Simulated scan of single mutants.
Amino acid sequence: MKTNCLRLFFLMVVVLLAAAPISFAGVNMDVAHKLTLANPPLDVVSTPDGKFMFVLSEKGIISAFDQNGVLQNKIHVGEEVERIKMDPQGTRLFVTSRLGKSVQVIVLDFFVEINTADTPSMGPQNAPVVLAVFSDFQCPYCARLAPRLEQVLKQYPKSVRVVYKNFPLSSHKFAKQAAAAALAAERQGKFWEYHDELHKYYRNLSDKKFIEIAQQLGLDEAKFNKDRHDPAILEKINLDHEEGEALEIRGIPALFMNGRRIQNRDLGNLQDIIDKQLKKAQ
């Protein structure tokens, strides 16, 4: 009995020591940025990832700064506002006023810049809605999304542009080769036709299949084979992949509408979001 008690005691000590917070010896401090405001600051909050900071100043102005201290946006919320708080997800600001007996809820709509230059695309270059999809030709979910995007283009022929970005997964043996083959087909004006065939045969991709599709589409086979091994095409794929990693893409397909990540890729949801975006653009 005494032995069991001793074992239990030592076990509790080990657990408590493991759970104890790290005891720091000290702290160094450096000024990362100094933000210059037109009015005295009243309150400040940051997003959970630390990428954005929101400063409430007198005169009721909330200023949004990025992690480099660059001003991104401003909004006037009323001079009686005293404090701001952020929800744990970093998607909403709560703006409180004791004098006004009110709480304003501000929805944060974050977006990113995506490079669409020199990238395969369908739809008008000046379309108000741009759908950028990071995809992989061996991915079954990517294959399912492709026909939905085609339907969107048919429904909004003058308003939507679809941009294709390569994000081949290392676990897919032929994904990068397929991406190179599609870009080689682009040099002969057949990217989207080749794209469709690759998605159709995503389970059975191989070097033989790449050549079969090229022959089926009437491509110049010698040029096609030379181009798909061109270092410039491989570099283009790598740049797309690096951009996707910088955007912290963890799963594919990854779809962005005007720089905003779209999680629900059902056709009905895409139509709803596009309609709302077109109303804003009017």
Rank of each mutant, 00 (worst) to 15 (best):
D275H: 10
V163Q: 03
I211Q: 12
L71Q: 12
S171K: 13
F191G: 04
P128M: 07
H229T: 11
D30R: 14
K226Y: 05
L205G: 04
L35P: 05
A25L: 07
N39L: 13
E82D: 12
Q104V: 04
V107D: 09
L183Q: 12
D136H: 10
L6C: 05
E80F: 11
L35W: 06
E193N: 02
Q216D: 05
M1N: 12
R161V: 12
A246Q: 08
T36D: 06
A38V: 14
D196P: 06
A222Y: 03
A20C: 08
F94S: 03
K226R: 11
M1A: 14
S97G: 03
I213T: 00
K200E: 06
V44G: 02
I273Y: 08
L6V: 07
P40Y: 15
D136Q: 10
D266A: 13
Q104P: 03
L247V: 04
V163W: 03
L145E: 09
E235H: 01
K74F: 08
D227L: 02
L234H: 11
P41F: 00
E248Y: 12
V152I: 15
A32R: 15
V77F: 00
N264C: 11
M29R: 11
F24I: 04
D196Q: 09
V55T: 00
Y156G: 14
Q277G: 08
I106R: 00
A18W: 00
T3A: 11
S171G: 09
I61E: 14
P88I: 00
A20V: 02
R144D: 13
V160W: 11
P48R: 01
K34Q: 15
F111C: 10
A20H: 05
I84A: 02
P147N: 12
G60C: 04
A127D: 06
K158V: 13
H33P: 05
R228M: 02
R144S: 13
I273V: 09
A143N: 06
S46T: 04
N166Y: 04
I114V: 08
I252F: 13
P120C: 09
M86H: 04
P140Q: 02
F210E: 01
F174L: 06
K158P: 14
F9Y: 02
Q155T: 13
L35F: 09
V129M: 13
P231N: 03
S23N: 09
V160H: 10
L11R: 06
K101N: 14
E235Y: 00
E212D: 09
F52H: 12
P157M: 08
F191K: 05
E235D: 03
G244V: 01
I252R: 07
L205R: 04
M1W: 09
E79Q: 14
A18H: 01
Q89D: 13
E186T: 04
L239C: 10
L8K: 08
I249R: 07
L8T: 06
A117M: 13
K173P: 05
A180H: 02
V95N: 02
S206C: 05
I252T: 15
L270M: 15
L198N: 03
V130P: 03
L198I: 05
P231R: 03
K34Y: 10
F110W: 15
I114A: 06
E197Q: 12
V112T: 14
I22N: 10
R187Q: 14
L247F: 04
S159Y: 12
S121A: 15
D49N: 08
K208R: 11
